[in-house]
Design a protein around this nucleic acid. Structure first.
Lengths: 221, 221
DNA sequence: CCGGTTTTGTGAACGCGTTCACAAGCGCGT
DNA sequence: ACGCGCTTGTGAACGCGTTCACAAAACCGG
């Protein structure tokens, strides 16, 4: 079955953002189930493992046209391929990480990337003391060497202090990077053709603080 | 079930989740503006600095009953207090971090916490080589010392490998922690009275991979 | 003191995502 | 072969969040 020539290709472009954000979670859950030797999995089981509602899971999977078998469930291996394909993990992007501080090292050593087809290809910094170090099998190089490193589809990861983030971002864009993941706690501006996502380590903590505070005051009733 | 039993009169407790998630961003933007010497700020300016729509910003602020001045804008200092108060950052929770690997060190050294009233109070691990080390002014202690550390409102942060996360989570819950932030790439289960949030460093990267992939294949059309 | 200008606060419309509920489909036991 | 039970896929309803558009309110210059 050549799925590529089917009109399903149009459906792929219409996957809701919320679904895409959950696909990596399903993928991880599936890997875990596969290691346990499971061959098929029902939506109920997979939903449990992924921590979501089973109806939501089925709707999500339906968006990428994956076909389970009614009365049986989903073939684990096939589903892994489907999701990996949908996420574009079969032909992995090159990932350039800028900023080899504590967070940068954590990211470089993070196992979750390589096992999913996303490996970091280059570590860049500007600190002379850091340049030349070997970290997770990569040699840290100077940020100036960035031009020419970006070949084809590339993702840039910013793990620098906030004050350096915008300049690094501009240099990434200038080098041809079209997707940027920002860990620095600052708002970046990019040209419209560049995808920008951010992860702020402290925001989630502040959200928890809110709930904790609300619990404390609410309990006083 | 706690939300269902809440009376409608407590409108302050009814701040939408989406709004809460943005308040920390506003707070950070306000800190930046305050350093620039701004005394008042319009919704347009603040929205720009925070990277959101101005209408959204106004609606968000209206939820916490903060009053700006029509024709003028918001008083920066007052707004900072309002948001800090709403997030419960004025009486900071104690934060316990478990797992002093690369990521744990990054979190311990992350400036964004302390400056917002959220300081990490304890670093715990089980690795004998790590215990006793001084990191960011704190001495790493053994996880066994956790009981008794949790006084009043506390937040637990899990930065361990995935395989250890559930056990650490259970021990945090047993010690009385009611809010947990999980950085380990695994699904945790907690009792219903415990708030659980997660940050998966690799998920955002996979989402970017999807968009990158889509851009590449979409351009071929 | 008053019209003009600026900006907030918010009701209403819209769109997206979640949830519900059930028909359609598949395998299995008899 | 055939019904029976299980599970998927999905239309429909619902709820939440975003966006729009504008009235109300405050300041300012004359």
């Amino acid at each position: 079955m050549t799925a590529a020539s089917l009109p399903e290709e149009r459906r792929r472009a219409a996957i809701p953002e919320a679904t895409i954000a959950r696909l990596p979670v399903y993928l991880r859950a599936l890997h875990g189930l596969a290691e346990d030797g499971l061959v098929t999995v029902s939506s109920e089981e997979l939903a449990e493992a992924a921590g979501v509602n089973s109806a939501k899971l089925r709707k999500d999977l339906s968006h990428l046209g994956s076909y389970g078998t009614r009365g049986v469930g989903y073939d684990v291996e096939h589903l892994v391929e489907q999701i990996s394909s949908a996420l574009g993990l079969q032909r992995p992007c090159s990932v350039v990480l800028v900023g080899v501080g504590n967070l940068g090292r954590a990211l470089a050593g993070y196992g979750g990337f390589a096992s999913r087809g996303l490996a970091i290809d280059a570590l860049l910094d500007v600190d002379p003391a850091t340049i030349g170090q070997q970290i997770s099998g990569l040699t840290v190089r100077h940020l100036d060497e960035l031009p020419g490193m970006v070949t084809g589809a590339s993702i840039g990861v910013i793990a620098t202090p906030a004050r350096a983030a915008q300049e690094v971002c501009d240099r990434l864009v200038a080098a041809g990077v079209t997707s940027i993941l920002n860990f620095a706690p600052t708002v970046l501006s990019v040209p419209p053709h560049v995808d920008l996502r951010k992860v702020d380590l402290s925001i989630e903590l502040q959200i928890l603080s809110f709930h904790e505070h609300r619990k404390a005051t609410g309990a006083a009733t």
